[in-house]
Structures are given as C-alpha cells and as structure tokens.
Write a protein that binds this DNA or RNA. Structure first.
Lengths: 208, 208
DNA sequence: CGCACTATTGAGTGTATGCTCAATAAAACG
DNA sequence: CGTTTTATTGAGCATACACTCAATAGTGCG
C-alpha cells in the first residue's frame, strides 16, 4: 500500500532501451531469434508491445542488433579467455579456443547462429550482421592460427585458409551437436589432428 | 470456350497428393522451408488451402516429409553420381563427391538444411527427419571414405570420425557460402588436403 | 439418365504478428 | 501548486497463419 507500485513505471529512455536490449538478448539465447517478437520482449520487460515498438525503428533492426550483440560479446569473451592463457606457450591459446568452442554447453549460441542463417533470407540487416560477425570470427581465428603456428611457418594466405576451414568445422560440429547428432563426441581431438597437420605442428601438441 | 476449364478440377487422391508433394518441394527449394505454408502450396497447385490441409494430418508433417524427400533425393542423386565414377580408381568417387558437394550451385539445398536446423526446435517430426538424414549422410560418407582409403588402412571407427569431420566441414563451408562469406573459395582444395592426411593418401591424389 | 460418392470449395474461427495513434499519467519545471 | 513535457498505454488495424465444416459440384456406377 506504499508508493512502491505506481500504475505506470516511467523510466528514462536510456534505461528502457537498456532493459529492452537485455530482454531481447535473454529471449534470443533462451528460445531462439525466432521467438524474438514485440510481445515477448514487452512481457519480459513488463511493459506493453507498442512501447517496445516505440523504441525501435522496426523489429528487423532489433533482431539484427540482438544477434550482433550476442555474437560480438561471445567473440570478446572467448578472445579474453584465450588471451589470458596464451602466455604459457604459443599453442596454448589455440588449444583453449578449441576447448571453449567445442566442449558443449554452447547450444544456445549455436541456435542463435542457425536462426541467424535462416532468417537472413528475409532480413537484410540481419544478413549483414551475420556476414560481419562471421568475418570478425574469421579474422580472429586467422591471427590466432598464425601466432600458434610460430614465426614464419604460415603465410597470411595460408592462415586465412586454415582459419576458414577451422571456422567451418566448428560451425558444422556445433550445429550437429545442437540437433543431437553426436557419432562419438571426440570433436576436439578430431579437429586438433587436422590443425596440427595444417600448421606443421608435432602431432599431439594441440590435442592435449 | 471448350470444355478445357471446368470450374473445379477434380483428380484422384493419389494425383493430388503427388501434386502437393511436388509443389511443397518446389517451394522449399525455391524459397526455403519457412515459406512452406498451406496457402503457398495451394496457390502453386491451383487449389484452395483447405484442400491441402485435407491431404495432410498437419503442416508440421508436410514440412518434415518435404525435408526428408528433398534430402533423401539429394543423397540418392549424389550417391548415383559417385558410383558412376568410382570405377576409375578407388579415390575417384570421393573426389567426385567433394566436387559435387562443394562446388557451388547448391545454395538452395543448403538453405533447406539451415531452415531444417532452425525449425527443428518447434517441430519434433522435422527434428527427427533432420537427425535421420544427417545419420544417413554420415553412413554414406563413412563407407566412401573407408573404400577410398584402401583396404585395411582405416578402421571402421577411424572412418566414422573422418566422415563426421568431413560432414561438418561440408555443412559449415556450404553454410558460409550461402550467406555470402567466401574468403578465397578454395573449398575443395582445402578439404582435400585434410582428407588426404587423415586417410594416409599421397598429397595431391584428392585435390586433382 | 439419374443417383450416390466424394473431391473440392466458401465462409469462417482463433491465434499471432508488426505497427499506428490518440489518450493518459508520471515526472520536470517555473 | 499549476503547467508543460513526454513516457506509456488502450484500442485497434491489417496481415498471415493453421485449421474446421457444412455446402457444392464433378465423376463413375447402376
């Protein structure tokens, strides 16, 4: 009976925008980009649908930006995690990266990627975001591969090719894991052997 | 003004069912599994939506069966193509397979796979179809890899692992190609080098 | 030819989507 | 304390979806 619950909670545009972004991320991660609707966001924030619409130019923009935010954060987190362990030896970073990217518990982010690929056909802004973030991952992987291989072992072009292959394998394996297809879940060992060969590393250096 | 255009074209259930299946396949391949709606099918067949509904237990069933039909046919076609060329030398089949799977012009089928992964979350029948077809591809690839490596070179378990990796790479590379991400489109050469190593082939045997 | 069978339709229900807009109420300000 | 500003809502529009069901009209059979 105090003043705690006014009929309308009025906040600053910045606060509301932040709430909406956070809700959108939570929904996308929990139920997929497909479940990201005006009403779903509104319900989660505790406001009405028109308010959410008021804060966004269109739903396509919110979907694209939510995808971008989730994936950019993922890249930043994994990057930070890798950099924290890269000091031991030059291969350690890549090993940590593989373990992080492939050792399960990432189905929610994988689902966001898959929905992004699927929805891109009808949402050009999302398509651009997907391409941008894929390129960003590729760039990060290429520099990591270059460093892990050692000075002068791989050319830039070679590192690019290896990174493209690595990215494709990671996406493919994660997608298969997401749909429940796991024919012997030795994904890390699998990919490690290939990379060791491509990077001229002594067999076993990555797999450990 | 002849009798060519009766107000209602009445056909046998078998004919209609075939028309509906064909229309569903065409729509899924042309516009994606997402575009597969009662109205879309009805318009393409030239009938009304309720008739299409009448021929199917539910839309989820039609989507799942259309996916299954498209992908099963794809596997059969590629398999036939490979078997037609497998006579020359034991590696020829695998080389043909890679060229077929990776050399572009397959974005429509890739899009069907991507939509299948995405829609699986809300369509259990589709999810089962996706898992089944993935397993079928894996089995086919494993036996092809086993044969191409030569007698006794790979164990069954090793061939399974290589096939899983190959399948993931193919799916990942095709998905990336579909969204327009092509950092140097040497996909075949890329994957060939990896396979040559995994299968203990002389470098260059697959890439040609 | 006329009748029975059934493939097909028209009309409609219920739900969900994004989005608009005038009205409302909370906060800020003089 | 009254006025202005504006964040928020209620109501509603247009669209699209799957699905139902009684009515309709081809088609083959007797």
């Amino acid at each position: 009976m105090s003043t705690d619950a006014p009929k309308r909670a009025r906040k600053t545009p910045a606060e509301r925008a932040a709430e909406i972004s956070a809700a959108a991320r939570a929904i996308a991660l929990g139920e997929g980009l497909h479940a990201l609707t005006l009403r779903a966001v509104a319900d989660r924030v505790g406001v009405t649908a028109p308010l959410v619409a008021h804060y966004q130019p269109s739903m396509d923009v919110l979907v694209a930006e939510t995808f971008r935010a989730i994936v950019a954060d993922e890249l930043a987190e994994v990057g930070a995690h890798v950099r924290a362990h890269i000091g031991r030896d030059r291969v350690a970073g890549l090993r940590i990266l593989l373990l992080t990217l492939l050792d399960g518990g990432r189905d929610d982010v994988t689902a966001v990627w898959v929905d992004g690929w699927s929805l891109s056909r009808r949402n050009p802004l999302l398509a651009a975001a997907v391409r941008d973030q894929t390129a960003a991952w590729h760039t990060t992987l290429a520099s990591l591969v270059l460093a892990a291989a050692g000075l002068g072992v791989l050319s830039n072009a070679e590192a690019d090719r290896v990174a493209a292959q690595l990215l494709a394998m990671v996406d493919g394996l994660n997608t298969h894991a997401m749909i429940g297809f796991r024919p012997g879940n030795a994904n890390v060992a699998l990919i490690a052997r290939t990379l060791e060969h491509e990077m001229r590393l002594t067999p076993g250096t990555l797999a450990g």
